[in-house]
Simulated assay, not measured.
Amino acid sequence: MNLLEAVRLVAARELKVKLRDKTFLFSTLFFLLFAFGSSVLPALFAGGPSSVAVAQSSPYEGKLRGAGLNVKVVADPEKTVRDGDADAAVVAKGDSAEVLAMKDAPNDVVSALSVAPEVHLLDPDAVDPLAAFLVPFMFALVFFFTSLTFGIQIAQSVVEEKQTRMVEILVAAVPVRALLVGKVAAGGILALAQVALIAVVSIVGSQFSDDAGTLLPLLAPAMSWFIPFFVLGFIMLAALWAAVGALVNRLEDVSSVGMPVQLLVMLPFFLVIFLGDNPAAMRILSYVPFSAPTAMPVRLFDGSAAAWEPFASLVILAAAAAGALLAGARIYEGSLLRTNGRTSWATAWRDRELRSI
């Protein structure tokens, strides 16, 4: 059996086990419902247009209907408002209009009757401030939670195989490196599939929003670049998490031994969030392998990245992922069959070196 066939068998086994895991299925369903709710609920709770009462033959009826308001033609507009059957009423007062409301006049009614001045946009392609905050936050959040969640699951899977002695059977059947690459490949497939489902659900839910037509075209380039950055970033971190699992023999030790890897995931998340409005810092972060999967798509979204920059950043990230995969494989091979307690990073590295001599 060659290495490629062994990797395929290990990945297929990992996928079958994971797809039968109820915890994984319920967590995926939860994320999908959260993504859909986050997209739909704001639009639903925003409420519809105000209802406004006008008298018969009112000169303002056409203007109010043209603004999309719910116009009610009644005999007594003021009584309609007092009875709670309309949010506001518009009546003629001399040559102008008067808005009647119980407490606060709805802004959409006032806007419909106002004469808007001519507006000339100096920067029509500028990103909305709210979107400028939410998009970086969502990119960082998706990569942070996905890489951390699936990475820890990979480490726990390795520990469980060591505890049950299953790893000895697996090593006898396939090369040790095939186990590592197969686990990383299966985790990457599941993580990417989960992110894709969340993206689809979010896009469908965003259609209920009035800003969908303007935001989605701006997001498309950043989302298309996010996929290769996400895949390479996940491979880089997943290889390290697999090494963490090989270093320990108890599930309780995964968190403590994996603390350096957790910091490599957490620090870029907070840096992108808090330094998102700093162009110089974001430029640097978009070339650092552990922050590039979120920083570069954000720069592509706000238009601050040159056309060549994502390619350069992707090459650096690919090199870092390859290095992490080789280093993780060395640690993995040097500690996987050790069952006499926790193994240090240095010991696992030296053990693999001695075995290769």
Rank of each mutant, 00 (worst) to 15 (best):
E5K: 14
V7Y: 12
L9V: 07
R13Y: 10
K16N: 12
K16A: 14
V17G: 09
K18Y: 10
R20H: 14
F24G: 02
L25H: 02
L25K: 12
F26G: 04
L29G: 15
F36M: 13
S38L: 15
V40C: 02
A43E: 05
A43D: 10
G47D: 09
S51V: 11
V52Y: 01
V52M: 04
Q56L: 13
P59Q: 09
Y60F: 14
R65V: 08
R65C: 06
R65K: 15
G66N: 07
G66A: 09
K72C: 07
V73M: 00
D76T: 12
E78G: 10
A86M: 11
A88N: 09
V91K: 05
A92P: 08
S96Q: 14
N107T: 14
V109T: 07
V109Y: 08
V110G: 03
A112Q: 03
E118M: 12
E118G: 11
A131R: 02
F137N: 06
F139P: 02
S147Y: 06
T149Q: 06
F150T: 10
I152K: 11
Q153Y: 14
S157I: 09
E161C: 09
K162R: 15
R165E: 12
L170Q: 06
V171W: 01
V171H: 00
P175W: 08
P175Q: 04
V176W: 03
R177I: 01
V184P: 08
A185K: 08
I189K: 07
L192D: 03
L192W: 00
A196Q: 02
I203R: 06
G205R: 05
G205W: 02
S209M: 13
D210E: 15
D210C: 01
D211S: 15
A212P: 04
T214A: 15
L215S: 08
A220Q: 13
M223W: 12
S224N: 10
W225C: 05
G233A: 12
F234H: 04
L237D: 00
A242S: 11
A242Y: 01
V244P: 00
L247G: 05
E252Y: 12
Q262M: 15
V265Y: 10
L267K: 04
F269I: 06
L271C: 04
I273R: 02
F274P: 11
G276P: 01
A281I: 07
A281P: 03
A281T: 07
M282L: 13
L285P: 00
P293T: 08
A295Y: 09
M296N: 05
M296K: 03
M296H: 09
R299Y: 07
P310M: 02
F311E: 11
I316M: 11
L317G: 01
L317K: 01
A319F: 12
G334M: 02
L336V: 14
R342T: 14
A346V: 14
